[in-house]
Amino acid sequence: MDSAHDTDRRLTALEIKASFSEDLLDSLNALLARQQQQIEQMAAQIALLRQQAAGQDAGPFRSLRDELPPHY
């Protein structure tokens, strides 16, 4: 009789662990989906910034040292 009780206790413990593992997996999946959305939004923003930068005067590269204030 003690063996059956021990088996039931172990089975219950395994079911609890499986339940927590499943919950954790669902939480991580939701987090990963949110991160993917953020990555896609940032990639779109970068693409927009590149388009805006390309649309501006595409003159030669100028160093910030070339643009010293007049009092220097």
Rank of each mutant, 00 (worst) to 15 (best):
A54V: 01
D66A: 07
S27R: 13
P60F: 04
L32D: 09
N29I: 04
L48P: 00
G59T: 01
F20P: 01
S19K: 03
A53D: 03
L32G: 01
R50Q: 15
Q35E: 11
F20L: 11
A58Y: 02
N29T: 09
F20T: 08
P60D: 05
D57Q: 05
Q37D: 07
S19F: 06
A33Y: 02
G59S: 05
A33I: 12
Q36H: 05
E40I: 04
R62P: 00
A54L: 14
L24D: 06
L64I: 04
D66L: 08
L25N: 09
P60L: 03
Q52L: 11
L31I: 08
S63I: 10
A33T: 11
G59C: 01
A33F: 05
Q41S: 09
D57P: 01
Q37A: 12
D57W: 02
A33E: 11
L25G: 07
Q35M: 11
L31G: 03
M42F: 08
Q37M: 06
A33R: 07
A54R: 08
A33H: 10
S27V: 11
L31F: 03
S19T: 08
D57K: 03
A47K: 07
A53N: 12
D26F: 08
A43Q: 14
A58P: 01
I46G: 02
A43I: 03
R50G: 03
P60R: 05
Q45Y: 07
L49N: 13
S27C: 09
G55P: 01
L24K: 11
L28E: 03
F61K: 04
L64W: 09
Q37S: 08
S27E: 14
I46R: 09
R62H: 04
Q56E: 08
E22D: 11
A47H: 13
E67R: 15
R65I: 09
G59P: 00
L49Y: 10
A47E: 15
Q41R: 13
R65S: 06
A18K: 07
Q45A: 15
A44T: 11
R34N: 14
